[in-house]
Amino acid sequence: MESDLRQRLNEGCKVLGVVKGVVKDRTLGMNIKRVLHKKVIVPTGMYGSELWGMKVTKTQKLNGLEMKCLGNMAGESRLDRVINKVVRVRTGVRNELAARLCMDVLRWFGDVEIMEKGCLLKKMCSLTGGMKDENVDQRL
């Protein structure tokens, strides 16, 4: 899992390097930059993240990648020593990448829970937690 996270972070940095000229352009509006961040950079860095086991160091690495991108969008560098909250307010991105990752994981487990009884993935995850399958189906 550590190598998968490292690979995704490297891919996110590559994409950020490619679009850096567009993101740093002061003539573009923040809405366009925000859409680029949301639709290109974040999905590249988060691909397959539903299965990652997250620790504090991993969340810090993810948030570091995002803050590097948001800093470029806001026209700030690390040398400017602007705190993350200020950069988030300037760019309009409220939630941290690690918080969005937690929401994605919960959404993924919710999708697994509503799968049919015989599905292999549901059997492997065994989300019933000691409950009978018919009780799970009755709640739905």
Rank of each mutant, 00 (worst) to 15 (best):
Arg100Asp: 14
His37Val: 10
Glu116Lys: 15
Gly17Leu: 08
Leu65Gly: 04
Asn63Val: 09
Asn95Arg: 03
Ile41Pro: 00
Asn84Lys: 09
Lys33Ile: 14
Gly48Arg: 02
Met1Cys: 07
Met30Asn: 11
Lys123Asp: 01
Val56Asn: 05
Gln60Ser: 07
Gln138Asp: 13
Arg107Gly: 10
Val86Met: 11
Gln7Asn: 08
Cys69Arg: 03
Val22Thr: 09
Gln60Lys: 15
Leu36Arg: 06
Val42Leu: 12
Glu11His: 08
Thr27Gln: 05
Leu70His: 01
Val40Asp: 00
Arg81Ile: 12
Leu36Asp: 01
Leu5Pro: 07
Gly71Glu: 08
Asp111Val: 13
Ile114Gln: 04
Met54Ala: 12
Leu101Cys: 08
Leu127Tyr: 03
Thr59Ser: 11
Arg88Ser: 07
Arg78Tyr: 02
Met1Asp: 13
Val56Thr: 04
Thr59Glu: 15
Met30Lys: 11
Gly21Arg: 08
Lys68Asp: 09
Arg34Gln: 11
Val15Gln: 06
Val18Glu: 04
Cys125His: 05
Val56Ser: 03
Leu28His: 02
Arg94Gln: 11
Val56Phe: 04
Gly75Gln: 07
Met73Ile: 15
Asn95Gly: 01
Ser3Ile: 08
Leu28Cys: 02
Leu70Gly: 06
Val15Lys: 09
Arg8Met: 05
Val15Tyr: 00
Gly75Trp: 00
Cys69Phe: 01
Leu28Thr: 01
Ala74Met: 04
Val42Ser: 06
Trp52Phe: 09
Arg34Ala: 15
Trp108Asn: 15
Arg88Glu: 10
Glu116Cys: 06
Thr57Leu: 09
Gly53Ile: 02
Lys38Thr: 10
Met103Glu: 13
Arg78Cys: 05
Lys38Ala: 14
Arg88Gln: 13
Asn84Trp: 01
Asp111Gly: 15
Gly71Met: 09
Glu11Ile: 14
Cys13Trp: 02
Arg88Thr: 12
Leu16Arg: 10
Gly71Val: 04
Val15Ile: 13
Gly64Glu: 09
Glu134Val: 05
Glu76Val: 13
Ser3Thr: 07
Thr59Trp: 01
Gln60Arg: 15
Met115Gly: 02
Ile41Trp: 00
Arg90Met: 14
Glu96Pro: 00
Val82Lys: 09
Gly92Cys: 11
Arg26Ile: 12
Leu101Pro: 01
Arg107Val: 12
Arg90Gln: 13
Thr57Ser: 08
Val22Lys: 01
Cys125Lys: 13
Lys24Cys: 07
Arg100Cys: 12
Arg88Gly: 10
Arg6Thr: 05
Val87Thr: 14
Val82Ala: 03
Pro43Tyr: 01
Ala98Ser: 14
Asp137Ser: 05
Met46Tyr: 01
Thr44Gln: 13
Lys24Glu: 09
Leu101Gly: 07
Ala74Gly: 03
Arg88Leu: 11
Cys125Asn: 06
Lys122Ala: 10
Arg94Gly: 06
Gly129Leu: 13
Gly64Thr: 15
Lys122Glu: 01
Lys122Ile: 06
Lys38Met: 08
Leu121Thr: 11
Val35Phe: 03
Val87Phe: 04
Leu140Val: 12
Arg139Thr: 07
